[in-house]
Amino acid sequence: MRFTKDHEWVELDGDVATIGITAHAAEQLGDVVFVETPEVGKQVKAGDAFAVVESVKAASDVYAPISGEVVEANPELDSAPETVNASPEAGGWFAKVKVSDPAQFEALMDRDAYEAFLQTQ
């Protein structure tokens, strides 16, 4: 699993990346009440806002950590957005993306680097 400074995580399986927000991000947001996942077929570019997560208080953008085509969005989040809080780095995944440039994955932080980054925040 790799991580971004915007607190997204990516897991790569072959050329399909599963993307979500980190436990730290979910804790900071508080109770998630709505998630807008990207539409299947959408082309996303690394760094683009590609999903929205909402708490009672505010709406926050989620940025694509990696470029590619959205091949699946997590249907669970439509009916149970609280899954993001309960299981941010597993069942609370947002979308799967068929990656166009796997090298982008290698360039992201590993868990140790992300944990160290959180210490600086």
Binding site: G30, D31, V33, S55, V56, K57
Partner: peptide
């Protein structure tokens, strides 16, 4: 803005 419980609780 909130305590440990969070806005919802």
């Amino acid at each position: 803005v909130q305590y440990a419980d969070g806005v919802m609780k």
